[in-house]
Write a protein that binds this DNA or RNA. Structure first.
Lengths: 191, 191
DNA sequence: CTTATTAATGAACAGATGTTCAATAACTAA
DNA sequence: TTAGTTATTGAACATCTGTTCATTAATAAG
């Protein structure tokens, strides 16, 4: 399975293209290996040479989406160093633009029928970035990883509600919400 | 399919018991319908009379777990009304005790290979309770559902990190962490 | 206890999965 | 261009899925 081999590249891209075609009419979890192979004109035995499940093929795509997420997240850093989410211009929170851009992918990510691997890929990437903003000893006796996990999944919670509402709000509106919540949690109700 | 019929009850409980037995050695997503039926001495055709997938059987169990979650969540309310998470005694945050009690279930819930339906059941239940603590106009221009989604999923974020660490910390320690984070987010960094 | 109802069974089916194999075709490096 | 490597193919296999059906057995209600 030489990755340079043109035959391998061709086979993989045929399968990926076939998956995209099928995804327009069939939900991911209902797509059979047999069906992808039929659509791609690839022998079923060949499929198992490269992938083991239909989701494996989807995984390849998702890598690119995650790359775009990182680019989006890096955006505001270009202008604000150090990064403090509570003080930044909400317009520069680009994650919601990224999600809206890949809406059809994220509908799969948040669908209750697909497994959690894509959710965790998203979670990990956001944790990476939230961790970058972390200031040591922010909260005494609570380790960084828990605070980061808390904050990263909170953002995803916002996105899940957005997803449940059919992604109706604009990305700008969502950025504003996040900005307001984070600011509020830092300012209201102080003793 | 009369739900009163003893035969139905017997069949269902046989299948449920068989699932529990198999779960001790095989992960949920690898358990085949054929295997449950073999273990339960139930005809495969009968299985389809009551369930459609292996996960359907698991679902029945999970209902009971969610019930226990609600009971745990209700605990502190008995003593503190109105409920304010930032001011409550961390010992009375019972959710982590609940999860530790059902650790083997939650290992399935958070496994990256199972689908998101159990995650969402947990999320919904926590949202229900976070929503109960909600004070109107907490954050202007951000609707309740988004704030609740944010906070509920944040708590789950904490649990995911706990899960990743093999549930090593005690429930008391986790309650303390949540308490500290919530308090900190309400008190530090105020202008 | 009897009877009408209905759940469970076993058998059968087409289709999908996961895997293996020798034969063939396509590719790379020389 | 050629020779050697290796990906792809098609065929075959056992197993699992999803569904249907007449037959049998268990149950609830009178």
């Amino acid at each position: 399975m030489n990755k340079q081999d043109m035959r391998v590249l061709k086979t993989k891209s045929s399968l990926q293209q076939a998956l995209l075609t099928l995804l327009k009419t069939i939900p991911l979890e209902k797509i059979k290996i047999t069906e992808i192979c039929r659509e791609a004109n690839i022998n079923r035995g060949t499929f198992y040479l490269h992938y083991t499940t239909v989701e494996d093929v989807f995984h390849d795509f998702f890598q690119e989406v995650i790359l775009d997420l990182q680019t989006s997240y890096d955006e505001p850093y270009k202008y604000t160093i150090p990064f403090e989410i509570a003080k930044i211009n909400p317009k520069s929170i680009q994650i919601f633009h990224h999600i809206k851009r890949h809406q059809s992918f994220y509908e799969i990510v948040f669908s209750k029928n697909t497994n959690k691997s894509y959710y965790y890929m998203l979670f990990d990437q956001i944790r990476l970035n939230v961790g970058r903003d972390y200031k040591p000893n922010q909260i005494s006796d609570v380790s960084k990883e828990y605070i980061v996990g808390y904050q990263a999944n909170a953002i995803i919670g916002l996105v899940i509600v957005w997803y449940e509402n059919g992604f109706n709000e604009t990305p700008e509106e969502m950025s504003r919400k996040l900005h307001k919540i984070v600011r509020a949690l830092h300012t209201i109700d102080s003793p």
